[in-house]
Design a protein around this nucleic acid. Sequence first.
DNA 1: GATATCCATGTTACCGGTAACATCTCTGGC
DNA 2: GCCAGAGATGTTACCGGTAACATGGATATC
Lengths: 333, 333
Amino acid sequence: MEDVARAAGVSRMTVSRALRSDGPVSDETRARILKIVRKLNYVPDQSAGTLSTRRSGFVATLVPSLNNLHFAESIQALSEQLEPTGLQMLLGHTDYSAEREERLIESMLKRRPEIIVLPFDGHTPRTIKLLKQANVPVIEQWEVPKRPIGYTVGFSNWQAARKMTTALIERGYQRIAFVSESEDAWTRGAARRAGFEDAMQSAGLSAHRMIRFGKPPISIEDGFQIGAQYSEHFADADCIFCVSDAPAFGVLSALKSQQIRVPEDIAVVGFGNFEVSRFSSPTITTVEVDARGIGHQTGELVRRLLVDENDRDGIPRHFEIDVRLRFRESTRA
Amino acid sequence: MEDVARAAGVSRMTVSRALRSDGPVSDETRARILKIVRKLNYVPDQSAGTLSTRRSGFVATLVPSLNNLHFAESIQALSEQLEPTGLQMLLGHTDYSAEREERLIESMLKRRPEIIVLPFDGHTPRTIKLLKQANVPVIEQWEVPKRPIGYTVGFSNWQAARKMTTALIERGYQRIAFVSESEDAWTRGAARRAGFEDAMQSAGLSAHRMIRFGKPPISIEDGFQIGAQYSEHFADADCIFCVSDAPAFGVLSALKSQQIRVPEDIAVVGFGNFEVSRFSSPTITTVEVDARGIGHQTGELVRRLLVDENDRDGIPRHFEIDVRLRFRESTRA
DNA sequence: GATATCCATGTTACCGGTAACATCTCTGGC
DNA sequence: GCCAGAGATGTTACCGGTAACATGGATATC
């Protein structure tokens, strides 16, 4: 920067001002400085700027996992929203572990993020303490916690699963099995399971056909293995509701290879509306979640909180994301 | 930090030393300081540290897109490798646009990354200039460029597609169609297409059945639409080689709905070995690429370049990643 | 017992920007 | 012609750490 200032015959401060769109610099001087900046290939050091302005320009972002299209898409949508603002995303993935989440947050806080975006899958007590002390807006995504730390963008997995279950019961299904992960203490999967159980009980039906298999995120392969044990798990069931479309597709694939007909012999239902559920045969009934919408709304919220000074009033604490039931060929009408 | 130092009755420097594992501080003093740090919830500011040490701890990482399992998995593998090193990843996605890539690199350079990891899909001239001037190791991933900037971790998509095509020809296929994206000027998809064409020509076969459809990344839906126009595109073909498993699955789905049998009437081949290709019916013949391996090797390389001081000699410039042909039910033996 | 050596700790300056205030020049109003 | 006010630019100090060197006391060496 010193070099640029010397070459332009001005002070460092003027260079600094010229590089920031707002600074009061004459057009002529700015043009001259920018030309020299380009010639010398000067790239400002943002950590020095951060230190001085106390604004890091970082958005700390956590996701449970990247190899899940939902999370990948919401991240992608968020990062697209962030681009024009000049904010940068610090990304980490928790791998569905609250301890890993805590470690990640701890290391990200050293970068002084201006906002923290993370999924709610249950936090450790220390995580909650760290988040509160960070003195920075916190946005919890996906599942909406009962006691939010700050803002939330998401929906109730409990309600979504309950709604689908109730709709299935209305369509005449009574002996519904539920497939979910084996270690999901606090995840969205657990909330879906609870919603399913509640709906069944409310209808006076038994929710005893609970299959737990595979670690989060449950995969197509896991679903295939479950489906391969049809007689053991589903002999007296009339419908298999899976915690996600991936195992639903796997179950379907396994049933097909055993000549079990869907939906004639048994129905299959997923969750998430992944692309594969629209193109499998039969196509899979599922719960559609607007993953991009979560990223987009979060981006919008970040903009209102950090960028747009005129739009800071009356920001709601909670943004509800759409959830819709998609009935397809894998259930009978 | 000042506060901590005062509370512990030492100088700021001693606190700084106590917080870094290496510093020469007596065990007793360090214990006392760490206790106070915890009590005061002091979190060091890494941008100040960066400024002073001239080490940012950042690994600038670009991917074409996140909603593609290959990239997501390689990123995940890389970030797992990075965790114990204390390095943090700055992630951006180019959306297959060289201009976006240039902008991202420009903004990331302000953070003074210690290394730059990016896919090779062709760069703008300015991008190449920026990367060279950054004076930082550069790792190009996935497709291996003819003229690498620094290190490379990947494989030749040209060769991989050529190998599969040759194997298909050996199995008796002669009228092979190739499905790829419509705007893929510099992508891996284009390299695959070129490899296909070369193999066909070497075998004295015509490579005129080129279907171009959909923007990168080509989806299941795109494949479905292509497959739905069977008679137009594939009336006289005996095999459909798709640039990725996603459209292959979509094509398969469309063929099935038209009662066209695979592989009896026509074969379908994908690329990537996504999970869906193992569980569709029929299962899909594909080219297996070790996506996690790319992330893992990259992480290993980063470690050797930045962390492990004793292992810095004789680091190869290029790491070749495994590619294997997986013949499944969608082609006849 | 004098000196060399080592370890724990302190002091000072600096990393590369920007906030805050000071200064200077030019313009317009009366 | 004098002064207020606004815009462009300069000066100084500071953001929160750490590098580099200085210091002081304990121990080892002969």
